[in-house]
Nucleic acid binder design. Structure first.
Length: 225
DNA sequence: GCGACAG
DNA sequence: ATCTTGTCGC
């Protein structure tokens, strides 16, 4: 690790504008037990190539977890990456990729956080509000909150806490591997999100939806070059 | 004031 | 996220 700052100082004016927008959107987030009958489960992810962004959506049939669709959109990125504001950088292109899905999903698993965010509006929550669709976040690293490292045994968990409120679940999806951070995005609740993440993490650390989205992001990337 | 900091 | 080699364990 270098000695200099990992994150360049962001434009304070931009941060102020984006923060205001987040405060507005967070009011629309609904955390509740989903009422859907899950049949179509989607996963999404984005990768970058210089100044361009490639977003992918995969659709799986639940509970078979059989891949039935995979689409992507390749476009320009307007904003830089600023911790806490990831959604503003990736959402525009993700929405364009989502529009290409023939069959719309009942739930979307997003790689990133849901409400486990400084202002409770991670990319999974923001995407959920914009699409008015149930979403949940599965992140590989923590953004905010405190937790105790769960035992490296599949199924073990630990609550991710912000003060006294739980904002996520630190979940070990496979033996002997670091945990993932699961949190509800929108029209979803913590318990269901954690249960689905564990249930769909079949042979790998990441649940199939996000793992496949991640995988195809690399495949399609080679295609656009 | 000093770190931390999704992808 | 991306840049990058070899290497350890299942």
């Amino acid at each position: 690790m270098a000695w200099y700052a990992q994150h360049p100082a962001p434009d304070p004016i931009l941060v102020k504008e984006l923060t205001a927008k987040q405060e507005e959107l967070r009011q629309q987030v609904i955390i509740q037990k989903p009422d859907f009958k899950l049949k179509w489960l989607a996963g999404c992810d984005s990768s970058f190539i210089g100044e361009k962004i490639l977003s992918v959506f995969v659709l799986l049939k639940y509970p078979e977890l059989e891949l039935v669709e995979k689409v992507y959109h390749y476009g320009d990125v307007e904003l830089p990456y600023i911790p806490g504001f990831l959604a503003f950088r990736e959402s525009p292109n993700l929405l364009k990729a989502y529009a290409l899905l023939q069959q719309k999903p009942d739930l979307i698993m997003v790689d990133g956080h849901g409400i486990a965010h400084p202002r409770r509006l991670g990319i999974a929550s923001q995407l959920g509000v914009l699409l008015n669709k149930p979403t949940m976040g599965v992140a590989k690293k923590v953004l905010t909150g405190k937790y105790e490292e769960p035992a490296p045994v599949k199924g073990s968990t630990s609550p991710l806490m912000s003060k006294v409120e739980q904002i996520g679940t630190v979940l070990v999806t496979k033996d002997k591997v670091k945990p993932v951070f699961v949190s509800p995005g929108h029209l979803m609740d913590q318990e269901t999100a954690a249960a689905l993440a564990l249930e769909t993490a079949i042979k790998h650390k990441l649940p199939e939806p996000t793992r496949l989205a991640d995988h195809y992001a690399e495949v399609f990337k080679a295609e656009v070059r």
